[in-house]
């Protein structure tokens, strides 16, 4: 139960005001989900052997001791910590690592709650509205080429930072998802993926979509192909946005029970649950928006 938003500036060469644009869009649909807000942002210019990790570590003493455990496990994997910071209820760590990412990621998950892992991806999510999260994590300062975001009204699980969205595709770098809806064949799909060795850290259906898509990408499918098959494989009502290192995409179920509106011009593409979020980016203008039709998907890639 929520609102989603995503934006991609087509010219990826010049970083743009990604953070503040996403804040604006999410604030525009905050009525759809006042409980928590989250952002999946992509950093620029990361070296190939660097990994960014963000963990929920709590605060104070708990944060320090969790971070110590994380670093201990990192050293077991030969990951060299280059940068670390405790911020809000999270720890942000940058390491030099080029081993088996999946094994490393699962090991990290077993020590602490991972928010995201990627060479460029950084997910920031916490309870409160878009501006509350910005106050604690300085999202507005973030410059980048693309990202997605989510406002959540908690219905079936608690109002906690880790139940917030976006979700990272557990075990896979740089893939994030925001989803509005409900996947009804969740357990069936999850068991299939678990049989193949994938791990899940929540019972949230958004995590499932992320892992599902990441698995397809790992099998050398394009994002478009992954989205196309998701519409057949997933049951239920869904409108979701997915982001990778340099793409964003959407998929919408055949029942179209969950709203989605998009705006595209030569400069950018912006997608949101409601037009009001898009219009916030262009105050006073009447936008030529369109609504993805039921059972469709599409992707956009930034230029480099």
């Amino acid at each position: 139960m929520c609102g989603i938003a995503g934006i991609l500036y087509k010219d990826g060469a010049t970083p743009r005001a990604l953070g503040s644009d996403l804040i604006t869009m999410l604030d525009g649909c905050q009525h759809r989900g006042p409980d928590s807000t989250g952002f999946a942002l992509y950093h620029e210019g990361t070296e190939h052997d660097r990994l960014r990790l963000r963990f929920f570590v709590g605060e104070g003493e708990e944060a320090s001791s969790t971070l110590a455990r994380i670093k201990e496990k990192m050293s077991e994997f030969g990951a060299e910590v280059i940068e670390e910071e405790l911020i809000g209820s999270t720890a942000r760590v940058i390491v030099r690592f080029d081993g088996d990412l999946q094994a490393f990621a699962y090991a990290m998950e077993h020590v602490a709650k991972v928010v995201s892992i990627g060479s460029r991806l950084d997910i920031v999510k916490d309870i409160g509205g878009a501006h509350d999260v910005d106050d604690n994590y300085h999202i507005a300062e973030f410059k980048g080429s693309h990202g997605i975001g989510h406002v959540r009204l908690a219905t079936e699980s608690d109002v906690t930072p880790d139940a917030s969205h976006p979700f990272w595709a557990t075990g896979f770098a740089d893939i994030a998802i925001v989803h509005n809806g409900q996947i009804t064949n969740y357990w069936k799909m999850r068991r299939r993926l678990e049989k193949r060795g994938f791990e899940f850290n929540t019972d949230n259906d958004s995590e499932l979509i992320a892992v599902y898509l990441a698995d397809k990408l790992a099998q050398d499918h394009t994002l478009s192909e992954a989205l196309e098959s998701s519409i057949d494989d997933l049951d239920g009502t869904f409108s979701f946005l997915v982001s990778t290192q340099d793409e964003i995409g959407y998929a919408k179920d055949r029942l179209a029970a969950k709203p989605m509106v998009m705006y595209e011009d030569g400069d950018l593409v912006a997608i949101a649950s409601e037009e009001v979020s898009l219009n916030r980016l262009f105050p006073g203008e009447a936008l030529a928006t369109s609504e993805p039709t039921p059972g469709t998907y599409r992707t956009w890639q930034r230029s480099t």
Binding site: M1, H31, R32, L153
Partner: peptide, 12 residues
């Protein structure tokens, strides 16, 4: 009203 998010707009 297909979800809690739509319902809040209906109430308003």
């Amino acid at each position: 009203v297909l979800g809690a998010d739509d319902l809040v707009i209906k109430v308003e």
